[in-house]
Simulated assay, not measured.
Amino acid sequence: MKKVLIVETNITRYAGTHDATGLWLGESTEFAKELQKVGISVDYVSPKGGFVPLDPRSMKYVDESIMEFYETPDFKNRALSKTLNPSEVNPEDYFAIYYAGGHGVMWDFPDNKELQSIAMAIYQQNGYVTSVCHGIAGLLNIKDDSNNYLISGKTITGFTLSEEIIAGKKSVVPFFNKEEAEKRGAKFKQKRAYKDFAVQDGHLITGQNPFSARSVANLLIKEVK
């Protein structure tokens, strides 16, 4: 069976500040673990390849399941130390791409042309483009061969303005997900802040916040099993 490609950030801090950010750990581990349970393999890629920093705030929300996966040599090596560079990825090897979140992605996901090309290639071969939380940033600027936004006319979700306010990050983020998604013609749905919520529209599957990673994974699993 083909694999799933998990995309993670290389960004270590909020732009213009000394505040650390990076990958939200559970959004990668929980998603990958759900796939692993049913025998689906994953690879990890980042915009620059190599090292992926962890958002220190994400470590406050780990449970035993997350910690066990985090501590495996495979995850520490392939997901945090030696992620693939986009140039090393062959889209034909994957049936889905998944953009994990953490605030860092808001700076290195939206304008990465290589990742956009990979995602569009997977989508055009009848694959799935998925994300959770701030990972929606990776979907915003993907365009098809006719120069139309992939998310135009599609129902999607992602981290909300109310969640940014609760997180205390409204003043430091470069944009708001709902606003940017709607500029591109998407239909943005949301539920209560920090409650598990995922939505599927065809071959697009998106989750609202860190607590939605497993739901995104399970929607994808239903499609391919």
Rank of each mutant, 00 (worst) to 15 (best):
Q125I: 00
E8T: 15
I165P: 03
G104W: 10
L54C: 12
L220R: 01
I122A: 00
T17P: 14
E180R: 09
W24T: 12
Y70G: 05
Q116V: 00
N112E: 03
Y149K: 04
G39P: 10
S215F: 02
E88S: 13
I136W: 04
P73F: 07
R214C: 12
T157M: 09
F175K: 07
Q36G: 05
P110E: 09
M1G: 11
A15R: 15
A100S: 15
T9R: 10
T12Q: 15
M106P: 10
G50F: 06
R57M: 10
K178S: 12
G135H: 05
S215C: 01
Q116W: 06
N141W: 03
I11D: 07
K60D: 15
P174E: 07
N77R: 05
F176A: 02
K187T: 12
N147Q: 13
P110V: 08
Q116Y: 01
E27M: 03
F188Q: 09
I165C: 02
E64K: 09
S117V: 05
P73E: 11
D108C: 11
R192H: 06
A181D: 07
E114M: 10
F95N: 00
Q200W: 01
I11Y: 05
G39K: 07
Y194D: 13
M106T: 08
V129Q: 08
F51H: 13
I40G: 02
S87Q: 14
Y99E: 13
P86C: 07
Y128Q: 01
G135K: 08
G207S: 04
L35K: 05
L54F: 06
A193V: 11
K76W: 01
M67H: 04
D93W: 00
V199H: 02
K222F: 01
L219A: 05
I136Y: 09
T206V: 03
I205K: 03
N112Q: 03
Y44W: 15
K225T: 14
P56K: 05
A217H: 03
L5T: 03
G135M: 09
D145V: 13
L220Y: 01
S81P: 03
L139M: 15
T21M: 07
Q200A: 13
M67D: 13
N126D: 14
P210F: 02
H103W: 06
L80R: 05
K225L: 15
N85P: 06
E179N: 11
R214V: 13
V38P: 12
D63E: 04
F159G: 10
K195L: 06
D63M: 01
S171F: 10
Y123G: 05
L140R: 08
N90G: 01
D93M: 00
